[in-house]
Design a protein around this nucleic acid. Structure first.
Lengths: 262, 262
DNA sequence: CCCGATAGTTCCATTATTCAGAACTCAATT
DNA sequence: AATTGAGTTCTGAATAATGGAACTATCGGG
């Protein structure tokens, strides 16, 4: 029961290698030519060629007329289902909407995945447009309210293990270092709220609170995010309570919704 | 150059088998136990067990505490990128927003994938909530405005090949049969507009127009959708023109955006 | 407490896929 | 025409996937 913790690297054989390729292509910020991929994927040409062929055949990648590979649409299809039916998201949704209506700001639900936060849902205010902008995105755990809130529910060793491999990129003046992160986590455990005071992006602040299942199979958080000129420090304090309350409500929903098992 | 058309089934070896499993789990409407999957996947127990293990290890599936498999969050991560950077979507976006503002109704951009339409983007009106609801979803080609519009730009044989394997499920009184579909496609080629007159869902209508790249590597459509009480038949006619115009604008954007290549 | 199910996991010799490198094609460049 | 760069195809050798069976839980009675 201690084989995990840090080294979660099992062998996934062929699949693992293909996933690395998918990662390369989806992480790039433009479609890649065969040679571009060849340069970063550690594979011989012939092998890579077949692998890309298979991925393309399955619709996971797409090959445009110029021989450039881009993420495939099948990924969208898979994800739409993954999202629509996510148990936690479904439970949380009404509470997120309520919190959005109370605060008028954007509300996020995120979940911890390794040392990243993946946003599961986002409820925006009146802005007519843009959706999906954030959902599914993985963000670093150390500079998001949701990430810090999530870390606060884990035991110290678990936190240490998770962030051991992370390099603390300095996004803004307020971005955490390893030390300040650990001390903030201690504070969050006390207060029940995490704050992002322009640590990831200048001009953006947020208040978050941890959400987790009893067995910690789900560890994440809810947050209210907005521009610094609206989310003054006093405002953040004021909303700390409803955010915590929303987190509580989601957690009790999870107990009911996921309860009658195990 | 005629090996394709109908039989696009190439061998993708191991990957193909794993994708079948992913399809099974993502298409189910609840998490599945090992035995459930065993019943539908045509695999021996040992093999299936390892395959599911690999998928889970990669985060494509998730195994909850009760031994039930659900779609994994990694799918979201992949999709977020696939979507955010989709070239066609990026080009179309401003035109979709403009069309939404003109009509006040929901605007969709969809693309043809085999015999299905996958929605690439959706721009809604004031409704504060729900996004992502449609994006990535695959819908049958024969009963959506976007689907019919897309078919209209393809040659007859191509259309025939695509819908040859399709069973025409009767969603409403107006749902097309093979015959009526073909004759409507002929009309769409004349008028430049496809309509959905409550063919998929009672009370929902839409006007669409085809959008495609010059080489037909992208075949899709734009549509304006709304409830029948607002989208009267006259209203549909009225909006046929701006929808066609939006489609035109997107296509000329594609010529510029994707032009200086090939 | 033991029995028989049902559900899930592990093992291992066999077999099929993938691998890696080289040879080849194709197109653009000089 | 010769040269380079980019992509594709081919092949025996290496490796990973396969599938059947044996194994281990876990559960619900009797």
């Amino acid at each position: 029961m201690d084989k995990s913790d840090i080294a979660d690297k099992k062998e996934t054989g062929t699949l693992g290698k293909l996933m690395v390729l998918l990662d390369i292509v989806t992480h790039a910020d433009a479609p890649m030519r065969f040679t571009d991929i060849l340069a970063v994927a550690n594979q011989p040409r012939g092998t890579l060629h077949r692998q890309l062929g298979h991925l393309t055949e399955e619709g996971l990648l797409e090959l445009d007329g110029d021989g450039r590979y881009a993420p495939g649409l099948r990924l969208l299809d898979f994800a739409a289902r993954s999202w629509a039916r996510n148990e936690f998201r479904l439970i949380a949704e009404p509470h997120l909407v309520a919190l959005q209506q109370l605060t008028g700001e954007t509300v996020h639900l995120g979940v911890l995945r390794g040392a990243a936060v993946i946003y599961l849902d986002k409820v925006e205010g009146r802005q007519p447009v843009r959706m999906y902008s954030q959902i599914g995105n993985a963000s670093p755990v150390y500079c998001t309210g949701v990430g810090k809130a999530a870390l606060s529910v884990l035991a110290d060793e678990r936190v240490a293990a998770l962030i051991s491999g992370v390099s603390f990129q300095r996004f803004t003046e307020n971005t955490h270092t390893l030390q300040t992160l650990l001390s903030e986590i201690a504070e969050i455990r006390q207060s029940g709220n995490a704050f992002d005071r322009e640590e990831h992006e200048v001009g953006i602040r947020c208040v978050a609170a941890p959400v987790h299942s009893e067995d910690l199979s789900f560890v994440g958080g809810v947050s209210v995010t907005g521009p610094a000129y609206r989310l003054t420090l006093e405002r953040l304090e004021e909303w700390a309570i409803p955010v915590r309350q929303a987190a509580e409500n989601i957690m009790s929903g999870m107990r009911i919704g996921l309860g009658p098992r195990r």
